[in-house]
Simulated assay, not measured.
Amino acid sequence: MTDSSSKIARPVLVGLGMMLVAFNMRPALTTVGPLLEAIRKDTGLTASGAAFLTTLPVLCLGLACVLGPVIVRRTGAERGVLIAILIIAFGSGLRGLGGLPPLFAGACIAAGGIGLAGVMLPGLVKRDFSENAGLMTGLYTMVLCLGAATGAGAAVPLADALSGWTWALASWAVPAVVAALAWIALVPKQENGPPPPRRSSLWRDPLAWQVTGFMGLQSSLAYITFGWLPVVLQSRGLSAVEAGFVASVMSIGQAPSALLVPAFAARLSDQRGIAIALLALAAASFLALVHGPVGLVLPLGIGLGLGLGGLFGLALTIVVLRSRDVTSAAGLSAMSQAVGYSIAALGPLGFGFAHDVFGGWSVSAGLFCAIALASGVFALGAGRDRKVGTSLTA
């Protein structure tokens, strides 16, 4: 292969590899919700314990993001992604041992791998696809949403086919191993030049905090939905299979907006309006799923998916758009996801506790809307046409 053809082929291969990695960045999280009632029945897990099961992985995801820039500097982005996907595979497989300790440990380990991969992918987009950042962000976000949908929809059928929830959860190690094997070919045999220079900290930059707040709060909406929507729907009379199907349809509904919103938002100088519209769609759809007619759960699930998928794709796009270069993209990605996912972890926990304390789902649904409102406040700052670090010395 000539040098020119190699330069053309490598970004294509990196893009395909990113899609395989992205597919594995949600099933470890979305497969638990549809099986939560079966897990509780089999293990005696309380509602509060279930809230922690949906919260701890998100918290671990956020904490792992802190390590992302360190790993990139020491190993390079490609090796870092390989490490991340192997961690996802290990954590997913660990859940097959059965019992609560392997379930909690495996979920947290897999979430740590997801956090590492999530920090590194925006940097690869900025490095290899800077002129098509919106399109590439949309593509891998769409595939990520399809992975989430596949996990949610296949959870109960896999549990039936494999005689229990343990093997159904552990089976998601297989696609992660496939992605790792494919990604190995992209890891350079030696470092590609010196590590990127350090930049001044973004922790004193108001715009970086606004991006972080938007990332975290919109993510909280998604993790509440992943963890609790199937339980809410079962409480309204749907079977576990039906609730899992609605959750899967909701995740599939994320795909088109996750693809189209980043590409559209990247063409705009200001993303505030689209952020507010998507937040309103998500909040209204969730309220209707909790209180509206049961016969409309499928179209309402699609509406919720469109809102959440668009928000996630928009948040990732804003990280790239607000960054000046590859280094600031990695730093902003790490900060927004590390702090943001730590904030997001409180959403599922608060949602479950509100249900325990007040009974029913009205107060929990009100909490969902309050988080959406707070996310909108941060979006008003994060969506402006500015760059992080402009007030800081390099």
Score class of each variant (00 low, 15 high):
102 P>C: 10
180 A>H: 08
10 R>W: 10
251 S>V: 00
228 W>S: 08
114 I>C: 09
24 N>T: 09
342 S>Y: 00
45 L>Q: 11
176 A>T: 08
99 G>V: 01
393 T>D: 12
364 S>E: 02
298 L>R: 15
53 L>T: 02
66 V>C: 00
90 F>C: 07
4 S>Y: 00
322 R>N: 12
169 L>Q: 13
141 T>Q: 09
228 W>D: 10
224 I>A: 10
101 P>S: 10
381 G>M: 10
345 A>W: 02
388 V>L: 12
10 R>Q: 14
267 R>N: 04
333 S>M: 09
229 L>V: 06
320 V>Q: 08
311 L>G: 05
42 D>N: 11
261 V>C: 11
204 R>Q: 07
157 P>G: 07
40 R>T: 08
238 L>N: 12
89 A>K: 04
157 P>L: 08
253 G>I: 00
389 G>W: 01
22 A>N: 04
156 V>C: 05
241 V>G: 12
206 P>E: 03
266 A>K: 04
11 P>V: 09
240 A>W: 02
1 M>R: 10
167 W>D: 12
21 V>D: 06
149 A>E: 03
115 G>W: 09
268 L>T: 01
46 T>A: 09
335 M>S: 01
260 L>A: 14
143 V>D: 08
155 A>S: 14
305 G>T: 01
385 D>N: 15
177 V>H: 06
213 G>T: 15
290 V>A: 10
338 A>W: 08
228 W>G: 07
316 L>F: 15
186 L>Q: 14
251 S>H: 05
12 V>H: 06
154 A>T: 15
114 I>G: 05
254 Q>L: 08
285 S>M: 10
68 G>F: 01
301 G>T: 00
394 A>N: 01
206 P>W: 03
52 F>H: 07
8 I>R: 14
179 A>W: 07
357 V>H: 05
288 A>C: 11
315 A>P: 15
